[in-house]
Amino acid sequence: MDVNFQEVSHVYMQKTPFETLALKNVNAYFRASSVTAVIGRTGSGKSTLVQHINGLLKPSAGVVSVGEHHLEAKTKRKTVKAVRSHVGMVFQYPEHQLFEETVEKDLLFGPKNKGMDVAEIQKKLPELLQQVGLSESLLKRSPFELSGGQMRRVAIAGVLATNPDILILDEPTAGLDPQGQKEILKLFMNWQRTYQPTTIMITHQMEEAAAFAEYMYVMEDAEIKMQGEPETIYAQRKKLQEMDLDIPEQVQVLQQIEQDSGIRFPHYQLSPAEAADYWRRAVQNGGVPRV
């Protein structure tokens, strides 16, 4: 399923002294089965943007199209519910949404609400737990007696349980240590590769975005200020720095090598070993770049 924003604006607390314009004439397109990152500093409107995709927020002006559905200011709740059953959303600190007596019940909460075949999904729960890096022995445990990291994985599994066509990740690694962040990202990458949902990831860290996005939107002050493939974005370092962002360190290193040696790398997502290997081969060819 693809998602399209056309001239979307959103105003919080309209007609009060606390009125905030959180989205200003936003146009954006998320291709079906693609992975897109939305980057920008805190308060730039990233969460507001994605909460329009499952109708948690309605546009003050403009249209959000999800598949063949259209969400507007006056859209009926029936349409909103239809859209919602296709969208999975992992919020910041998703572990705060756990509430059931057992992990199993909590995992089934989403599928049950969305009218899916619960018995069928129940059979697949052990596999699902394994996909998020947990043992199936946790199924009968209370979610509240798990460690913080385990709770987060259970909460994520609770969203993935409905196998959504559109997967929205709103800073899913917030508050984790670097190792934990990597593991969670990897989990999502594997999931994306297997089931191919349209994936939209919000982050304020370039490193995270770089790890798996094919397209990027950069937000600032309620607007989309930059968009393009990661390479295009990295080429505008100055502009990024003005928004308190920077290109990933790994990319900085590769760019520096390119500048000093004249070697061109095919893309910047190379792992350190791949980059070293590529560089060695290029040098053996007399510094001539060859892919």
Binding site: L56, F91, H96, Q97
Partner: peptide, 11 residues
């Protein structure tokens, strides 16, 4: 926040 999260899960 929690209302939003549970609504997103279909509540």
């Amino acid at each position: 926040k929690i209302i939003k999260a549970q609504t997103a899960r279909g509540a």
